[in-house]
Design a protein around this nucleic acid. Sequence first.
DNA 1: ATGCCACTTCAAGTTGACTTGAGGTCAAGC
DNA 2: GCTTGACCTCAAGTCAACTTGAAGTGGCAT
Lengths: 142, 142
Amino acid sequence: MKLLDIAEVAKRSGLPASTLRFYEEKGLIESLGRRGLRRTFEPDIIGRLALIALGRTAGFTLDEIAAMFGRELPAQLDRELLSAKAEELERMIGQLTALRNGLRHAATCPAPSHMECPSFRRLLKIAAARSNRTPPKGRRKS
Amino acid sequence: MKLLDIAEVAKRSGLPASTLRFYEEKGLIESLGRRGLRRTFEPDIIGRLALIALGRTAGFTLDEIAAMFGRELPAQLDRELLSAKAEELERMIGQLTALRNGLRHAATCPAPSHMECPSFRRLLKIAAARSNRTPPKGRRKS
DNA sequence: ATGCCACTTCAAGTTGACTTGAGGTCAAGC
DNA sequence: GCTTGACCTCAAGTCAACTTGAAGTGGCAT
């Protein structure tokens, strides 16, 4: 018998049950039925949750992800979107790389004040340029 | 005469005036005085705003950034923090790179369903692993 | 001296992704 | 048969980083 109850899914996916209920409400996942009042899921829910995680990582909102699951075939548009996201990631990677180098330097730079370090000042330009697009907004978990 | 009024700062930094007021309220920047009722800033506000942008890009919250500006000397801790952030970025870059590769592949993959593509399934594992740390949360500006 | 209009304040609203709390239910173990 | 505890629902709360709106002010061009 392969049905997983919500606690099992929570354990395997690392997501709290409340998030799974929330995702279901949003239409991102569906439960197959109930055992008593407990939701049960098909085992491939794990794959779908991974897919959702992927989408989030790539910067899609939950609504966008839900929309993608919604329609069936026109993978045409999907692929365009995927390409676009890949490009976006490409740029982001470039900037983050520069940023990482800058931070590394700043961490070990002997200049009395960071502002006096030319390398640091280059870094600032990158950040300033970057700041106009896609402000990162962190809910860190701890 | 070098003082900039808020509109000038807004234009040069690309940030709306409301954000500048908000930053001031938060203690991230300070205005030097008023010309009439209008705030005026020293020109190096631009540098500071770049620094704030840098911090945000690196994943600090505004409160963390404010705290950093607060204390003066113990650059010791600063540098540790910077190293830590650099490491974090390093990991993030690795994952985003894998992700970008995966997206690129998915965009051109001929498999009828993505789920049937082994390359795509590898991608899912990365995303699933990534999903536990630092959920990205996008306010896109458009 | 008058009116415009970009600025001001302060409170409240927004967004996305959840989490929390109160009050209820049910299968299982004693 | 009764308690227990993990689940349930639904509404409301939270968090970060801003934005928006209403009502007011003051420098400057006419």
